[in-house]
C-alpha cells in the first residue's frame, strides 16, 4: 500500500469538532457517509451532475462528491442532519418541504434543502427566475420541481415577512 495514503483531517461537522484519518483519494461524500454515518449525503452520480450530495462548507453549498475529504481541513461543514434540533425540531425549510409535498422518494431532498438553506440565509428576495436558476444545480425525477420551488419560495417570503402571494397560498 502506498505511503502517505492517509492524512489526518480536523474539521467541524454539524457543530462538533472532529478529526479523522482519511484516504487522500476519498471524496467528502465518502468521508461523511462512511466515517461519520451521515447518510443524508446521497450519491446520485458522483461527478457533480445531480446535487444529491450537497453540503454546506463554511456556509457555501458544494457537491461533496467533487470535494476531496482532505480539503475539509479546518472547514465548518453542515449536512442535513445538522439542521435538525437536538429534540428533532425541524427548521423552517424542512417543514416547508413536508407541508408543500416537495418530497417524494426523498433521495434528492437532502441536497435540495442544503442549497435552499444557502439561498435563504442570504436574506435576499429573489425573483422566480433567479430562484429557479439558483436551484438548477439539482436534479429530481419525482416532483417536476413544482413543489420544491413552492417550498423554497414560501420560506423565503415567510422569512422576509412577505408571504401574501395568492398563488403560493393556494
Amino acid at each position: 500500500m502506498a505511503k502517505n495514503q492517509y492524512k489526518l483531517v480536523t474539521c467541524t461537522i454539524n457543530g462538533r469538532e472532529v478529526e479523522k484519518m482519511v484516504d487522500v483519494r476519498a471524496s467528502l461524500t465518502d468521508m461523511l457517509r462512511n466515517d461519520f454515518s451521515l447518510t443524508s449525503v446521497k450519491k446520485g452520480c458522483e461527478v457533480g451532475e445531480c446535487g444529491a450530495c450537497n453540503v454546506l462548507i463554511d456556509g457555501e453549498c458544494f457537491n461533496s462528491c467533487l470535494y476531496l475529504a482532505v480539503w475539509a481541513e479546518g472547514k465548518n461543514i453542515t449536512t442535513l442532519e445538522g439542521l435538525t434540533g437536538p429534540n428533532g425540531e425541524l427548521s423552517d425549510i424542512q417543514q416547508a418541504f413536508i407541508d408543500e409535498t416537495a418530497i417524494q422518494c426523498g433521495f434528492c431532498t437532502p441536497g435540495f434543502i442544503m442549497t435552499a438553506v444557502e439561498i435563504l440565509n442570504r436574506g435576499v428576495e429573489y425573483s422566480d427566475d433567479e430562484l429557479r436558476k439558483l436551484l438548477s444545480g439539482h436534479l429530481c425525477r419525482c416532483t417536476g420541481y413544482e413543489n420544491i420551488f413552492k417550498a423554497v419560495k414560501k420560506t423565503m417570503l415567510r422569512r422576509l415577512g412577505k408571504l401574501d402571494d395568492p398563488y403560493l397560498n393556494t
Binding site: 447518510t39 425541524l90 418530497i103
Partner: peptide, 19 residues
C-alpha cells in the same frame, strides 16, 4: 395530508439500500 414518511425524509433519516 402530509406524507407519513415526510419527517424522516426531510431530516435525512430515511434509509436506502446503501445506508
Amino acid at each position: 395530508q402530509v406524507r407519513v414518511d415526510g419527517y424522516d425524509k426531510a431530516t435525512g433519516r430515511t434509509k436506502y439500500y446503501e445506508d
